[in-house]
Amino acid sequence: MITQSNLEVIIQVWDQIDPSISRILTRMSFENEHDLAANLDSDLQDFIQQQQQKAQLQSSAHKLTDMCWDRCIGDRPGQRLDAKTETCLSNCVERFIDASMFLVTRLQKNLQGHS
């Protein structure tokens, strides 16, 4: 299992390599954290967390759009996104997440091996 403290180490490492991964991990880390600003109004607390997640999601989506646009869109813009392009975009996004998660798991095993 990932503990809170080694998750923080992983997040720091990923922040250098690929911030979009560290944001996914930060979100996982948030879900584990119970004593976040205990005095804050609970409605507001929920709202802030939702908005943070939304901002993280949008930011990752911008990076993925940038990357997958280069891979899947040719020299000229078409009249619409055709089915082939949409499939390319879907594969591009899904395999990026798979690759990231594969590497996070591998890194986590390495870190546990050293401790």
Partner: peptide, 9 residues
């Protein structure tokens, strides 16, 4: 493309 990516993601 952005709308498609965020949906898939």
């Amino acid at each position: 493309t952005y709308n498609h990516v965020i949906r898939v993601y």
